[in-house]
Design a protein around this nucleic acid. Sequence first.
DNA 1: CGATATCATGACAGCGTTGTCAACGCGCAC
DNA 2: GTGCGCGTTGACAACGCTGTCATGATATCG
Lengths: 343, 343
Amino acid sequence: MARIEDVARLAGVSIKTVSRVINAEAGVREPTRDRVRAAIAELGYRPDPYARSLAGQRSFLLALVYGDAAASYLMDVQKGMLAACAERHYAMMLCPLDARSRPQSASMGTAARLQDALGRARPDGLLLTPPLTDDADLHALLMSTNQRYASLSPWLASPDGHEDIGARMDDTAAVHELVQALIERGHRHIGYLDGPPEHGASHWRRTGVLNALAQAGLALPAQRVAQADFSFESALPAARQLLDQSPPPTAIVAANDDMAAAVLRVAWERGIRVPEALSVCGFDDSPLSRQLNPPLTTIRQPTQDMARTATLELIDLIGGSSEGHMHTLPYQIQWRGTVADAS
Amino acid sequence: MARIEDVARLAGVSIKTVSRVINAEAGVREPTRDRVRAAIAELGYRPDPYARSLAGQRSFLLALVYGDAAASYLMDVQKGMLAACAERHYAMMLCPLDARSRPQSASMGTAARLQDALGRARPDGLLLTPPLTDDADLHALLMSTNQRYASLSPWLASPDGHEDIGARMDDTAAVHELVQALIERGHRHIGYLDGPPEHGASHWRRTGVLNALAQAGLALPAQRVAQADFSFESALPAARQLLDQSPPPTAIVAANDDMAAAVLRVAWERGIRVPEALSVCGFDDSPLSRQLNPPLTTIRQPTQDMARTATLELIDLIGGSSEGHMHTLPYQIQWRGTVADAS
DNA sequence: CGATATCATGACAGCGTTGTCAACGCGCAC
DNA sequence: GTGCGCGTTGACAACGCTGTCATGATATCG
């Protein structure tokens, strides 16, 4: 494998000049630069990333930090982040903080597990995905160690003066718009299938339901709300509970697609026709939503774009060319086969 | 941040001895080892991974190399690989080779893209997932650069003398068993929804169908086979094509769950009742298969275990404690609601 | 009891880059 | 002609570890 020294010899310059060319630093005359580039190409030289990291105090490595999340969501996050990494010549590593991936550390908190993982490879920055964006210990650790990081969702209970960095979408507005449309189509008995209350996602989406109902002069009685943990299985009993009420809801909004699928399952089991007798809405626009029968009405979250945007923001933050912003990306309601006028 | 020198001073030993303790090398007396460990704990010392990589010529980094694959499958692969990495103190990076993640390199072949990616971070070993396991250029590149790697599926067209390393399952036997059971339940008109012919997965699964039919004295006429690319969308026209034949098939086996979902969609559109009028089977046991209505009969692939096993094998290969084996893990047929006796 | 083998430990030279700072060459002003 | 400043380049010391090999201490053996 060629080293920088070989390139320098071939180009007839010092290794420092080669280093300058590699790092696109100023102060190298164009002809010299060209000679060096030619030498690099001829030798097929690739700078050793470890030597670079050691000497330069930066690794060109970003880590994706995540807990338990739906496969399709996480996959989109990875794609977006990888796209940004490819654009800026960064590499990307995975840093799962859920207990299952690291059985031996089940007793540690998320912050401790993160610290442990960061010892093994030292990324220049981190991208946090929900629900970890609501983990106060994690924020505290990252801020105290002066780690650069971006988030894919604002910190729900962030202290005063904290500025989120990354990208988000307006969950509340999206759900508001969705529920408003349901109301316009005649629905008055609308059920809501919520996620864990400590998750920002649950909070913002629930707020959207409440706002839309309140605006129409409607209330959300306790028996029209059920709670689960965003998983299909956990949502089955919750969906049954909602459908057991009388009068039954004519529409159910779930905080994500997996839970909406559970509503569809229960309706199928009971012979309740969707959308004729029951409208169902999800959130995420996962592949699942298109594969269900009938296809699910849901809110498209621009997950890939958000991840890419947040990652670029993170890279700029690391490079010092930005102080860090939180970008808000547009959602889109996907009207599909699970919604009809209230009968 | 503490360095090895600080630990050495505190423990009253040389840095080399600390290095020995960190790397669990032999030749350090137990009391000394304890003093060093205590010093490490007291300082909260974490060896710098880049210095380690530079000096030691190894990175404790593994890369997952993949092309286009279903989200849930890839997620399981990641989980299994991450579990193995955590056990052995390796870090893991992602190396997607599909064109979308690296738009600017759309014109490069997979081998060239891999080479490009390997320049950015130099993993000690790679894990290849299908369908890249069938990419001859990739194998050639890896073997010529003497890279260690393992695969999650054998190389379909491997040259003589090539020994696959990693983990697999017996696709052919699984599908054989599944189709045999369909035949026993009275099905005689069985359709098969195939994947791309150049994929090993397509080949082995199709072979399973053929074997089972042949064993029962049945043939697989051309009009009972349709082809798609493993995606839901691509399988919709293929499913229609199968159901347009007369007599229509009483059962359709798809080469994966997404394509089986497409069969369910078309049946739903046409009012064909599943399983009463049509039995449907998938392959993968993805979350989707459980969320469809009715839930899909499918073959459980122990993806996570396979990935973990293959990764451990890879690590042993890197460490020289194994010459590399291909492990075969057991499958399991998940009988669910989409199969009934032929009417 | 001395010679030799074995074990535990340390000194020191890399590993392949980047950062710092000095040196050099050249043009321009006085 | 001399001096100054700027743009360009290079020498060399880090960066924080591991590998090699020498050294001293201890155990083994005849």
